[in-house]
Nucleic acid binder design. Structure first.
Lengths: 221, 221
DNA sequence: TCTAAAACGCAACTACTAGTTGACATTAAT
DNA sequence: ATTAATGTCAACTAGTAGTTGCGTTTTAGA
């Protein structure tokens, strides 16, 4: 997934993507080092100030080589983001939803502190090109789905009432923390995380008890 | 506040900001039309693709004139954002915190749908330059304070327990909605807003009842 | 091993836009 | 009317995205 980009612009001549054929050896090394260098540069200077030529130097590769494989800077970055988020995380499984969420959010807090991810996160929120925007959206939906599964599992084992809306609960537990953390780059304390999760879960139980949010669907309008 | 910008770079010669003296007439018209044009262009093409020369054309003014007053594109935009958010809104006052928040969030949803604000919001989330970042942060804190006051008023009139943390409640009621609305440009339905507010408020009452979040302070770590 | 296709390196491009500068014109307040 | 602040114009500089032609190296596979 992080190898071939099908951009709007075609790479020229015989350099277009080899249809499905996996290259190994040199080609693979180039892809790897370029994506790595892009991540590092992204981290160092952010998306807006990212220079393709710097990436090339750091990857020990010629600028042209990059442009042949990734027709635009946006596609290069979007591919980089994509490859960095490959890691299929295991779901936290502490036995209680409360602690699952505290672990999940704690991990996010740690990640966002690590220098390695700063630039990547900035690219995600500072998305101006449609390609980068698309990856950001994809990752966002993936995270949402991840949280929803976490909640659904808790509902299934009877920890939350069946009327609870898993997606809503996921939002309520995470949005205040993620907004501070990712959107505004604040430091979030453990206390805050716990208070958010406790309040959200308590509220969910109460609202469900009085026959609330049952068949609510949050789609397009 | 939207007139004089004290940028890092000094405008040259006698064009530096007239210390405190309010200009009227031509100067005022120029400022007004440039800020208006910037807002419109921002809306049309977004921050990354904003061309100072286009702004100048649309404002019926020379490019140089803009650069004399706003040394960089970032300062121009940051000033524009600032001026657009001048409007001192009156606080919603429906009598219940629930409805106050529903009104507040409903207004945000309407705003974010209006084309006029799209580009501005995109500039706020896509901030790459420190100047724009600073304005975004300022506006964010202003909103947060606004919400906290809303909640504090409700606490004062006994609608919520005194142990409730006003800032936390404000976050819980708004973050899920604002994250979908502003960070990801989704459409948010009325149902969703109501469910979020209900859950947050119910949770607040329960947590307070069992002696929760009393002296929690959310500052830097 | 040999060969053709695919991929890379290099250097010299084009194009666009942010920001600058100096000479000159206009405005507005004293 | 004088003068200082401000605006206009045109012609700059500089940085970076993206391109192109051509020669060299690598890779797949017969």
């Amino acid at each position: 997934m992080s190898t071939a980009v099908a951009g709007k612009k075609q790479a020229r001549g015989s350099d277009r993507r080899t249809s499905g054929v996996q290259r190994q050896g040199r080609a693979a090394k180039v892809v790897e080092s370029v994506l790595k260098a892009t991540g590092e540069e992204l981290n160092r200077v952010g998306y807006a100030n990212l220079r393709v030529e710097s990436v090339a130097e750091q990857a020990g590769v010629n600028k042209t080589t990059i442009y042949r494989r990734w027709p635009t800077k946006a596609l290069l970055v979007s591919d980089t983001l994509d490859s960095h988020f490959q890691a299929d995380r295991e779901m936290p499984d502490t036995g209680s939803l409360r602690n699952d969420f505290i672990e999940y959010l704690g991990n996010m807090a740690t990640l966002s502190r690590a220098a390695m991810w700063r630039g990547i996160l900035s690219a995600l929120s500072g998305r101006t090109d449609p390609e980068v925007e698309a990856v950001a959206r994809k990752l966002y939906l993936r995270e949402r789905h991840f949280r929803t599964r976490l909640v659904q599992r808790a509902i299934d084992r009877g920890e939350l009432p069946r009327q609870a809306n898993a997606e809503l609960v996921g939002d309520m537990c995470s949005a205040p923390v993620l907004r501070r953390l990712l959107t505004f780059g604040e430091i979030v304390k453990q206390d805050y995380i716990e208070a958010v999760v406790d309040t959200a879960l308590a509220g969910t139980v109460v609202v469900a008890a009085r026959g609330g949010v049952d068949n609510l669907v949050y789609g397009r309008d």
